[in-house]
């Protein structure tokens, strides 16, 4: 995949906060004067971005959790987008 390496460790970017909001029944990403309501898959990915797990770990965990396979491309694409939007930071 372009950009994101499977060994990279994504974490929520500085100044942002991810939390589950019952009133919206969604994970939301909070940041200065705004917020993003994440859909289910984005929430599932972001909530695993703890700066410890690698992208490959996250893919494996999601595939296990949802008993599916072939999520690599989607997860990489999302992580790349989230880094570009400064929602996530990457450590190699």
């Amino acid at each position: 995949m372009i950009g994101v390496r499977p060994t990279a460790k994504p974490s929520i970017a500085h100044g942002m906060r991810l939390q589950w909001e019952p009133a919206q029944a969604a994970h939301v990403l909070l940041y200065p004067e705004g917020m993003v309501q994440l859909n289910e898959s984005a929430g599932a990915i972001m909530s695993r971005c703890d700066g410890v797990r690698t992208v490959a770990d996250i893919v494996a965990d999601l595939e296990r959790t949802y008993s599916t396979s072939g999520l690599t491309d989607d997860v990489h694409a999302f992580v790349e987008l989230a880094v570009e939007r400064r929602w996530l930071e990457l450590r190699e």
Partner: peptide, 28 residues
């Protein structure tokens, strides 16, 4: 535009506006 974001106003509330578009992450 700042896509993916919800409509908010604060102190600058009346000060301006942009229209963003929802996209892959399910933002509004």
């Amino acid at each position: 535009s700042r896509p993916h974001e919800l409509v908010f106003r604060d102190h600058r509330i009346s000060i301006a506006v942009e229209h963003g578009s929802g996209a892959t992450a399910g933002g509004q």
